[in-house]
């Protein structure tokens, strides 16, 4: 195990997979010499592209473009174009990783993602697969406001044909990104910007992947299940500590894979604790936590001693002023309040 940040774990997964498979490449905006806006792709350009002889030679300059771009491709600002190009490349057998500068910008590419990447396999009767990974920061950072703070994972988890994961720890990030790159389906891999600098022990095994569809018990407990994914796992762990002071022993379930969803682990936890609160950063109304809550309510009805609680983001476009922004993002006090509310 090596201690590293979430950002480094994401980068390491890409390096290991790009080393292992020549078909893997990455494309996105400002990911080359600029290293990505969140510095996730730091070092990839140098590792996989020959240093161009003169970066600013006047076009036409095919030899330079070849040096700049073969496996780490700086694209123009064109999210639908990037996803469209990556989808085509994936259809022919390459394994593109698309970095979205922020998942909020993937909204621009919804047509390409939903109407093309996600449906091609089905529409062609299984003839064509699209091994594509779309990854990038999703959720609120710090005062990036309405158009940079979207939590998109619930939207994508609605779409048949996509796989959607939202890991909470550096180790999960590495193992699940490797799984995503090796998967033959389009995968949405969302990285909460608040996690990038979080540190943790990460497996050194280059062959170890963390398969999708398997939730993780982040903390065992017996009195209530806090069910979360991505950064909200940390919030739930913090809430569990506060609850412990009140003598309540909370279990924290890290869902980490939304589609496919591991209901078994979730249900087993609820059957043990008889209480559940689902915690998610996305807008509370219609967010993916609502789906989890609905399934628990229906499938664990006889096991529940209280209605299923939900903690989600406030239903407003993310405001810019910090004081307003903080109102919108769930925190441990919100979890505590919901636990008390359901009784």
């Amino acid at each position: 195990m090596t201690n590293m940040t979430y950002r480094e774990a994401v980068r390491l997964a890409m390096i290991e997979e790009m080393d292992r498979d020549q078909n893997v490449f990455i494309m996105g905006e400002d990911i080359g010499k600029y290293k990505g806006t969140f510095r996730v792709t730091d070092g990839l350009f140098e590792r996989y592209c020959q240093e161009p002889r003169d970066w600013l030679v006047e076009p036409p300059h095919p030899e330079i473009l070849d040096g700049v771009g073969r496996r780490v491709i700086d694209t123009p600002i064109t999210e639908p174009g990037i996803v469209g190009m990556a989808t085509g490349a994936a259809m022919t057998g390459l394994r593109p990783i698309v970095e979205m500068m922020t998942m909020s910008f993937s909204i621009l590419a919804l047509d390409q993602i939903i109407n093309h990447a996600a449906k091609i396999h089905y529409m062609t009767g299984g003839q064509i697969s699209v091994p594509l990974v779309i990854r990038g920061p999703g959720g609120a950072a710090n005062q990036l406001s309405a158009q940079h703070s979207h939590s998109m994972e619930g939207w994508y988890a609605h779409v048949p044909g996509l796989k959607v994961v939202a890991p909470a720890t550096p180790n999960c990030a590495k193992g699940m990104l490797k799984a995503a790159i090796r998967d033959d389906n389009p995968v949405i891999f969302t990285e909460n910007p608040g996690l990038y600098s979080m540190k943790g022990d990460v497996s050194d095994n280059v062959d170890e992947i963390i398969p999708f569809g398997k939730a993780r018990i982040a903390k065992e407990g017996k009195d209530i299940s806090l069910i979360a994914y991505s950064r909200m796992v940390n919030v739930s762990l913090a809430a569990a500590e506060l609850l412990a002071a009140d003598g309540i022993d909370a279990e924290v379930v890290d869902v980490r894979s939304l589609l496919p969803l591991d209901t078994e682990t979730i249900y087993n936890s609820v059957r043990k604790t008889h209480r559940a609160v689902v915690v998610y950063e996305d807008w509370k109304s219609g967010g993916f936590g609502a789906e989890i809550a609905a399934r628990i309510a229906q499938d664990c009805f006889d096991d529940l001693d209280a209605p299923v609680g939900r903690v989600g983001g406030l239903n407003v476009p993310m405001p810019y002023a910090r004081v307003l922004e903080l109102q919108c993002i769930p925190n441990e006090q919100d979890v505590l309040a919901e636990v008390r509310k359901i009784g």
């Binding site: 400002d30 806006t37 600013l56 030679v57 473009l65 700086d74």
Partner: peptide
């Protein structure tokens, strides 16, 4: 410059 990307990576003409 488009953020970190020079013009020749954005458009093939001057």
């Amino acid at each position: 410059w488009a953020y970190g990307t020079p013009t020749h990576l954005g458009y093939p003409l001057e």
